[in-house]
């Protein structure tokens, strides 16, 4: 399996604050990986370092085998790594459909088109011409996922996609994540909801204080253990 994304002993900072300490992780094509840990351990900072929002001052990040010298927000999408950001990041002055079209900016052709996203999320077709932020929280999450898929990524990073959503919506999203992964797209699921992790991911990394403190395959026993020690 070829490696899609590799963090090797990454040290990252916000200004003078040292957030990631020798953080390493690796995701291969088609894998379903979860990144778990409490609030403030540096999960989102991993995403922000990949995007160049937090500054990378040690170690290396590589996408598809080629190292990113100076990460920039617009680079990852073009190389096949799409991010569904925490808080969804729907653009308020664009319609639902325009938010989806924004996802094509990376210029990667493939399976996903606007009609295919509408098949995956029929509600988005109904609301195609309303402003993106007029949708409910769950629908906005669907839009953010649809927009990420529009770049036909090899890997989708989902940063706390179920935060603040009702359990019934979470169940719906779990099904969607598995459908997307079944098409061969790798997932990196950043989550605190371990029951979702158990339903979607095959492998996990657990983080504390800006570094990986445990990793391995996902199963019920391991998740039960992690619930007590890593997340709770």
């Amino acid at each position: 399996m070829s490696t899609l994304l590799k963090f090797e002993r990454v040290n990252a900072f916000y200004g003078a604050a040292h957030i990631l300490h020798d953080m390493s992780l690796e995701i291969a094509a088609g894998e379903r990986v979860a990144l778990i840990g409490r609030n403030g351990v540096g999960k989102t900072t991993c995403v922000n370092t990949l995007l160049g929002v937090a500054s990378l001052r040690g170690g290396s990040i590589a996408i598809g085998g080629s190292g990113l010298k100076k990460p920039r927000p617009y680079v990852a999408a073009g190389l096949g790594v799409a991010v569904v950001p925490q808080g969804r990041g729907i653009v308020a002055n664009l319609s639902v459909e325009e938010n989806l079209i924004l996802g094509t900016a990376a210029g990667r052709k493939g399976h996903w088109t606007v009609p295919r996203i509408y098949e995956l999320f029929p509600i988005l077709r109904e609301r195609a011409h309303t402003p993106g932020t007029a949708l409910s929280g769950g629908q906005q999450q669907m839009l953010a996922i649809g927009r990420a898929l529009m770049s036909n990524p090899a890997l989708v990073i989902l940063d706390e996609p179920t935060e603040g959503l009702a359990p019934v919506i979470v169940d719906q999203l779990a099904t969607i994540f598995n459908q997307v992964a079944d098409l061969g797209t790798a997932l990196l699921l950043i989550e605190q909801n371990l029951s979702l992790v158990e339903r979607v991911a095959h492998r996990y990394y657990a983080m504390a204080k800006g570094a990986v403190i445990g990793q391995g395959p996902v199963n019920a026993a391991v998740m039960h253990e992690l619930k007590e020690h890593v997340v709770a």
Partner: peptide, 10 residues
Amino acid sequence: TITSMQGVNV
């Protein structure tokens, strides 16, 4: 920032 993340060199 969001626009940039979609691959637009803002």
